[in-house]
């Protein structure tokens, strides 16, 4: 210790300690409300360890015959959901850019915020009775949510675009449509495609759970195997899902980086 210690630097102590206090209070209240008593929490690690033990050995036979086809179905419905989302969101992203269409932008942003607020599984809840049990309902549900998210992100990309190129096309006598096609799209398309791919990664995770409401994919298998305590089969679902999603994330991630670097 030096003889003249520097005075301790204080990082807005008032703000930090108030936040901690409030969040801590809310946490305790919530824990009390869901009846998570200290005794129950203390029992947790042993309980979890015990259940974890049931998951071994993994039932590869089940994994091969049932889980892989279901994962393929999940990938397919994630893909269709993404295609629907990408196709519909492209015009919405352009119309939703406040720099280009200030009035339309307000409406479109409101709609897309509403769509995004409803989890995709709730959309599926309505679509399953309409188009029947199965992956088609799931793909539509993912498509709806993808449109919501992609038109918001897309509008932000378009808003950050350099408008000079569009002006140049219009100054040279091009129509508005030509300006968008030649002056705007080449600028924003790589970034938009990167967002589409990112949404595909999200859709893959979401598609995995849609089976819970009967809308196809691998989620139904996990729900049923766990319900009937067939842990070794559930383990196959988990391990294969992790592996496939990791692999697709890696591929998609590297393509996205390439797109953004140009």
């Amino acid at each position: 210790m030096s003889a003249h210690p520097l005075p301790a630097r204080r990082w807005r102590p008032g703000f930090a300690s108030w936040t901690t206090l409030i969040v801590g209070g809310l946490l305790l209240w919530s824990l009390w409300a869901i009846e998570a008593s200290p005794e129950r929490l203390a029992r947790l690690p042993a309980q979890l360890a015990q259940v974890l033990g049931f998951f071994w050995p993994v039932d590869w036979q089940y994994g091969h015959t049932r889980v892989l086809p279901a994962i393929v179905e999940s990938i397919q419905l994630a893909w269709i959901g993404t295609i629907i989302g990408a196709a519909l969101s492209l015009p919405l992203a352009i119309l939703g850019a406040s720099t280009l269409f200030p009035w339309a932008a307000k409406v479109i942003k409101g709609i897309s915020a509403t769509i995004r607020a409803v989890p995709e599984i709730l959309w599926a809840l309505y679509l399953v009775p309409i188009v029947g049990l199965g992956p088609f309902a799931g793909a539509l549900a993912l498509g709806i949510n993808s449109v919501g998210m992609l038109s918001k992100l897309g509008a932000e990309v378009v808003e950050s675009a350099d408008l000079a190129a569009m002006e140049a096309v219009e100054a040279a006598g091009g129509s508005r449509l030509a300006a968008i096609r030649l002056g705007l799209l080449p600028q924003v398309l790589p970034e938009l495609m990167a967002h589409w791919l990112f949404r595909f990664e999200l859709n893959l995770r979401a598609s995995a759970v849609l089976g819970v409401v009967g809308a196809g994919g691998v989620g139904g298998l996990l729900l049923n195997t766990l319900r009937y305590r067939q842990f070794e089969m559930a383990a196959a679902v988990l391990v294969l899902t992790v592996l496939v999603v990791l692999a697709i994330d890696m591929v998609s991630g590297s393509v996205r980086r390439k797109l953004l670097r140009g």
Partner: peptide, 19 residues
């Protein structure tokens, strides 16, 4: 990375089974 691959509802199913 592995943690990120599983959707929230999968964790919910697992914990509902466990606890």
């Amino acid at each position: 990375n592995i943690l990120r691959t599983l959707p929230d509802l999968f964790w919910a199913m697992l914990f509902a089974t466990a606890v």
